[in-house]
């Protein structure tokens, strides 16, 4: 007697198509698109989804999580400094205190918990999808992203000619890591400028990343390592607390921009009028 119930090839194909097209139809127009599925992007998406925001994460790789799977030198123990371990408490990931205020946990455990927590909260994830460009609205405000399959980008343009599609959104969060791809796309048009990663006052890099997280262009919030190249901040060592708290700060800023309530328990700030924001 077979273990599995029967299902035809065609039925399996239809099931895949049904799920995929239903999701794509939903997030063709969403409140927030997060570009980049690393720790900061996932954290931002999770907090936004928990707050009831329609959010989709675009990830160019097949796997989600970016560098969160491994720590420094390909060793899969990741480190976080206090108070970032509280995020691990929230997502139910165990950890140990290595030394005062320095916590360690296996990367695969933390990363898989964060991915699960993000999806459990209601965020959608579109992997194998590359960011190509921004959607530009009146007065050059960003109103979404242009995307394509990652494999298409790997092929010579002359033989593929696959047009991209666009997702509309109120806000885009650039969580693309060192490349800051969304800001880079604005830079190509002369609309924004990255300062590039650099050393300024290196002993405070994690704090600086979190503090600089926020609206960097009308319609665009930067988070995670993208903050470093946008603002000329130093890169940091293999410690992930700033990525998680930067993602959280990005979500808070997005809620303010959307005119929604920022959870008070996380130290909500008064809503500052964004500079030059016009819709």
């Amino acid at each position: 007697m077979p273990i599995f119930q029967p299902a035809s090839e065609a039925e399996v194909t239809r099931a895949i198509l049904h799920g995929f097209t239903r999701d794509l139809e939903r997030y063709a127009e969403s409140e927030v698109v997060v570009v980049g599925g690393g720790p900061s992007g996932l954290m931002a998406a999770r907090d936004l989804a928990k707050a009831g925001v329609e959010v989709v994460v675009i990830e160019r790789n097949n796997y989600i999580g970016g560098g969160f799977w491994i720590g420094g030198y390909l060793m899969n123990t990741i480190t976080l400094r206090a108070p970032a371990q509280k995020v691990l408490d929230e997502i139910g990931c165990p950890y140990e205190e290595y030394s005062k205020n320095l916590f360690v946990t296996p990367g695969p455990h933390a990363c898989s918990k964060l991915i699960a927590a993000t999806m459990d909260a209601g965020a959608r994830i579109q992997n194998m999808t590359s960011f190509e460009d921004v959607v530009i609205r009146e007065e050059n405000r960003v109103g979404g992203v242009v995307i394509n399959w990652t494999p298409v980008q790997a092929l010579p343009h002359e033989i593929t000619c696959v047009d991209p599609i666009a997702l509309e959104s109120d806000l885009v969060i650039d969580a693309t890591g060192h490349d800051a791809l969304v800001i880079q796309s604005l830079e190509k048009r002369g609309l924004a400028k990255r300062i590039g990663e650099g050393g300024m006052w290196i002993e405070r890099s994690e704090d600086a990343v979190v503090e600089h997280t926020g609206l960097a262009y009308p319609g665009v919030i930067v988070a995670g390592m993208a903050v470093c190249s946008t603002y000329g901040l130093p890169r940091m060592g293999p410690t992930f607390g700033a990525m998680l708290l930067s993602g959280r700060r990005a979500a808070e800023e997005a809620l303010r921009q959307l005119g929604k309530t920022v959870p008070a328990a996380r130290g909500a700030e008064p809503r500052a009028k964004p500079l030059a924001r016009k819709r």
Binding site: A192, K193, H212, G214, Y217, V222, K273, L275, A276
Partner: peptide, 10 residues
């Protein structure tokens, strides 16, 4: 750059 101005505004 605009991102810096927005940061200062915050």
């Amino acid at each position: 750059p605009l991102p810096l101005a927005l940061f200062e505004r915050r």
